[in-house]
Design a binder for these strands. Structure first.
Length: 448
DNA sequence: TCTGGGGTCCTAGGACCC
DNA sequence: TCTGGGGTCCTAGGACCC
C-alpha cells in the first residue's frame, strides 16, 4: 500500500520574506498579489488580526476566491491597509523571482527524503513514503521539517496518509499540531473517525464552496459524513470526482503519483495593468509582450500551438466605467512556437475586439491546441506539406531564449512590445530584494 | 485612487451523422 | 402527415486547485 506524504510551506511567500528579515518574525507580515491588488499570503500573526469590519463583500460574487470569515487572504489591499498599518504590519509586493528560487531549494531538500516526489505547486510536494518502517514515519517527517528549517529557514507542515486526499487533510490538521506533523496511517479506525467527525466537509481537498454547500444540503456536513456516504450515490448526485474523494478518505488511493510534470495543455499570460489603458498603441505593446511570455513558456516545454486567443476587459469593480469584455480566437494553419508569428496573429486577434473609448484594465493571451514538437502531425493536405518546424525560426528563437535567460527577461524583444512599459506594467511598490538570484541584491552582513 | 494569475477537469448542450 | 434514438465531436461555462 502506497504511503503518501504532503510537505507544504506555511504561508510560503510570507515565510520567504521572513527568512531574509528575521526581525519580522514577531510582526504581522503579508504579501500582495501582482499589481499590489490583494493579499495572497499572510503569516499567522497577520491572519489573527481582527477582520470584523472588513469581512463583508471581499471580492464580490464573481471573484475567484470567496472570503472565508477566518481569512485575511484575498482581501483587497486598499481595504485592509489601515488595519495593517495600525498593527505595524510588514507589507510586501510579490517577488516571484525570490519565491521560485526558494521553492526549488525546498523541493530539492524534500526530494532527499523519499524515493519519489511529485511537485504539486510552488510550495507543496507529495512524497512517497512507502516501504519505510511504520513506526518511524513520524520521525522521518520531523527530520525533513527540521532540515528545511535549518537550510533555508522555511517552516513546513507534513501530513501522511494512504491517499493524496488523506495526506492533504493530515497536512491541514498538522498546521495546528504541536510539532507540525500528522500521520493518519498510524491511527486506529475509531480514532480516525472521531477526528473526521470534527472537521467540516469543506476542508477536504477538491470540495470547494459550491460542492460544500450542496453536500451540506444532503446532510453531509463533516469529513466523516463524506467518508461514510454511499459512493455510488455520490457519483450519481455529484460527480465521479466526489466519489473518488470519498474513497480516498477511506484510504483507497484513486489519484496517482505524477513524478514528471505533464506538459501544459493551455498556456496563458495575462496581467492587470498598473493603470487603465485607453489607446491602441499601448494595448498593442501589452499584448505583444504577453504573447512573447506565453511563447517562451511554450518553447520551454518544447511544444507548438495551433490556436491563439486574445482577451481584453475593463475593470469590473469600477462600476462607474462603461464595461466591455471580449475575446477572439484565431486558429493557425501550421503549428508554431515562433514569437514573431504568434505576435502577428495576436495583434490581428486584438484588432477584432478592440473598441476605442473604453478604459481597459487587463489583457491576456492564451495558447491552445498544444502539441509536443516531437510528435508533430504534419498536415499532408496543407499547401506546404513538408513543414514540420522551421530551422531558421527555430534557431532564432533559441538565440532569443538563451539571451533572455542569461541576461534577464526582455533583454531581447520585438519592437512591438514597446520600450516604455511603465505606461501599463504592474505596480510593485513594496518589493523586497531578490536575495538569492541577483548578485547586487545579496544580503550584506556587517562585522565589528 | 486601489479587487491576481495560471492552471485542470467535468458536464451540458448544440451540431451533425446514421 | 410521420417529428426516434444513439453516437461523436466540439465548445462554453462551472467548479476546483494553488
Amino acid at each position: 500500500m502506497t504511503i503518501y506524504a504532503l510537505v507544504d510551506g506555511n504561508s510560503f511567500y510570507a515565510s520567504c520574506q521572513i527568512a531574509f528579515q528575521p526581525g519580522l518574525v514577531n510582526r504581522p507580515v503579508v504579501v500582495l498579489s501582482n499589481n499590489d491588488g490583494c493579499i495572497v499570503a499572510a503569516n499567522q500573526i497577520a491572519k489573527n488580526l481582527d477582520l470584523q469590519h472588513i469581512k463583508t463583500n471581499s471580492m464580490g460574487s464573481g471573484g475567484y476566491h470567496a472570503a472565508t470569515p477566518d481569512s485575511m487572504m484575498f482581501q483587497p489591499f486598499f481595504k485592509v491597509a489601515p488595519l495593517l498599518k495600525r498593527y505595524n504590519t510588514a507589507v510586501f509586493s510579490s517577488n516571484y523571482e525570490l519565491y521560485a528560487d526558494m521553492s526549488q531549494r525546498m523541493h530539492a531538500i524534500s526530494a532527499q527524503f523519499a524515493t519519489r516526489q511529485e511537485i504539486y505547486s510552488i510550495d507543496e510536494s507529495f512524497l512517497d513514503f512507502t516501504g519505510m518502517p511504520k513506526e518511524s514515519l513520524h520521525s522521518h517527517a520531523l527530520a525533513l521539517k527540521k532540515r528545511i528549517a535549518q537550510w533555508i529557514g522555511i517552516p513546513v507542515a507534513v501530513g501522511i496518509g494512504h491517499s493524496k486526499t488523506q495526506a492533504k487533510l493530515a497536512n491541514h490538521l498538522a498546521k495546528t499540531n504541536a510539532d507540525g506533523v500528522l500521520d493518519l496511517t498510524q491511527m486506529p479506525e475509531s480514532a480516525l473517525d472521531a477526528l473526521y467527525k470534527k472537521v467540516k466537509v469543506g476542508k477536504v481537498w477538491g470540495i470547494g464552496k459550491r460542492l460544500s454547500e450542496q453536500l451540506i444540503n444532503q446532510e453531509i456536513k463533516t469529513v466523516y459524513d463524506l467518508k461514510s456516504a454511499n459512493s455510488k450515490t455520490l457519483r450519481k448526485r455529484f460527480s465521479v470526482n466526489v466519489e473518488r474523494i470519498a474513497l480516498e478518505l477511506n484510504g483507497q488511493a484513486c489519484f496517482d503519483f505524477h513524478e514528471k510534470p505533464d506538459n501544459k495543455q493551455n498556456i496563458v499570460s495575462s496581467r492587470s495593468f498598473g493603470q487603465n489603458v485607453l489607446d491602441f498603441t499601448t494595448m498593442r505593446e501589452a499584448v505583444s509582450s504577453y504573447t512573447a511570455t506565453a511563447a517562451a513558456k511554450l518553447r520551454k516545454q518544447q511544444s507548438t500551438c495551433q490556436a491563439l486567443t486574445v482577451f481584453i476587459n475593463t475593470p469590473r469593480y469600477q462600476t462607474h466605467l462603461a464595461q466591455y469584455q471580449n475575446q477572439y480566437t484565431l486558429p493557425l494553419i501550421y503549428p508554431t512556437d515562433s514569437t514573431i508569428l504568434l505576435t502577428k496573429i495576436a495583434l490581428r486577434a486584438l484588432q477584432h475586439i478592440w473598441y476605442e473609448g473604453y478604459e481597459y484594465q487587463k489583457a491576456g493571451v492564451m495558447l491552445t491546441n498544444i502539441q509536443t514538437k516531437t510528435n508533430l502531425q504534419p498536415d499532408l493536405f496543407a499547401p506546404n506539406p513538408q513543414y514540420s518546424g522551421n530551422p531558421k525560426s527555430d534557431n532564432l528563437m533559441k538565440a532569443l531564449d538563451n539571451i533572455n535567460q542569461k541576461m534577464g527577461k526582455n533583454t531581447l524583444q520585438l519592437a512591438s512590445s514597446g520600450l516604455q512599459k511603465n505606461r501599463w506594467q504592474m505596480n510593485r511598490n513594496l518589493m523586497s530584494k531578490r536575495y538569492t538570484t541577483r548578485w547586487e541584491e545579496l544580503l550584506k552582513a556587517y562585522a565589528g
